Amino acid sequence: MNLALFDFDGTSTHNDTFSLFLKFSLDRKTQLVGGIRLAPYIAGYKLGWVTDKTIRTKLCQVGYVGYDANSLKDMGQEFAKKVLPTCVRENALERILWHKQQGDQIVVVSASLGVYLESWCHSLGLDVICNQLETHNGILTGHFIDGDCGYLEKVNRIKNKYDLSQYPTIYAYGDTPNDYAMLELAHKKYYRWQEID
């Protein structure tokens, strides 16, 4: 059995599902107020001065603090059924199914939110490592459990969950610098669907 590690947004999808889910799950008022509060961060992100890790963290702190956890879980399941299938790249799904036919261990490793990504992964029988929103007494705090799952943290979580020495060949698929560290774990690396050394 080999190991196949797939980034999600941009690699397995055409879209940034994180921002799509924000629009799907937050009312217009929250989106408007949040957009005003985070305008400097959003502008900085577009200019390359603010990292994707920072913008994800800030968006969740503003958007989901005080949100009912069960309501968001329901939203996530609906999003996984209705929206995600329209976002997934055909070639990515074909590659995932090819790995399944080989009997490989397949893991989606993403900085996207578990509240929707877990549902989609479980429907395909895939493992998932991703951002988890913290709850307190059934209410979201706006923070991530154990921080943001990007960059080196992807590698840390993979190594914590899997014994990499057990896999004859490791495949990894990514599309941004967020995935570089994960790609370095692999024998066969694919960056934007092109095999690299």
Rank of each mutant, 00 (worst) to 15 (best):
V109E: 03
S110Q: 07
A111L: 04
S112P: 05
S112F: 09
L113R: 04
L113H: 03
L113M: 13
G114L: 04
G114A: 05
V115T: 13
V115K: 05
V115M: 09
Y116W: 14
Y116T: 04
Y116C: 10
L117R: 05
L117W: 04
L117Q: 05
E118W: 11
E118F: 10
S119F: 15
S119R: 10
W120F: 15
W120D: 10
H122N: 15
H122K: 15
H122M: 14
L124E: 13
G125I: 14
G125S: 15
G125M: 15
L126P: 12
L126C: 13
L126F: 15
D127W: 12
D127R: 09
D127A: 14
V128W: 05
I129Q: 04
I129T: 02
N131F: 09
Q132G: 00
Q132I: 12
L133Y: 09
G138S: 12
I139E: 12
L140E: 11
L140C: 14
L140N: 10
T141V: 12
T141W: 12
T141R: 08
G142N: 06
G142P: 09
G142E: 06
H143R: 11
F144T: 03
I145R: 02
I145W: 03
D146W: 02
D146T: 04
G147I: 04
G147V: 03
D148A: 01
D148Y: 06
C149R: 00
C149A: 01
G150V: 02
G150I: 01
L152R: 02
L152Q: 06
E153G: 00
V155W: 04
V155T: 10
N156F: 12
N156S: 13
R157H: 10
R157N: 11
I158W: 04
I158R: 02
K159G: 12
D163K: 12
L164A: 06
L164W: 08
L164Y: 11
S165A: 14
S165M: 10
S165T: 13
Y167L: 01
Y167C: 02
Y167F: 13
P168A: 08
P168Y: 04
P168H: 04
T169S: 02
T169Y: 03
T169G: 00
I170S: 03
Y171T: 02
A172V: 07
A172D: 07
Y173L: 06
Y173S: 03
Y173Q: 05
G174D: 10
G174F: 09
T176V: 09
T176G: 07
T176E: 08
T176Q: 12
T176S: 13
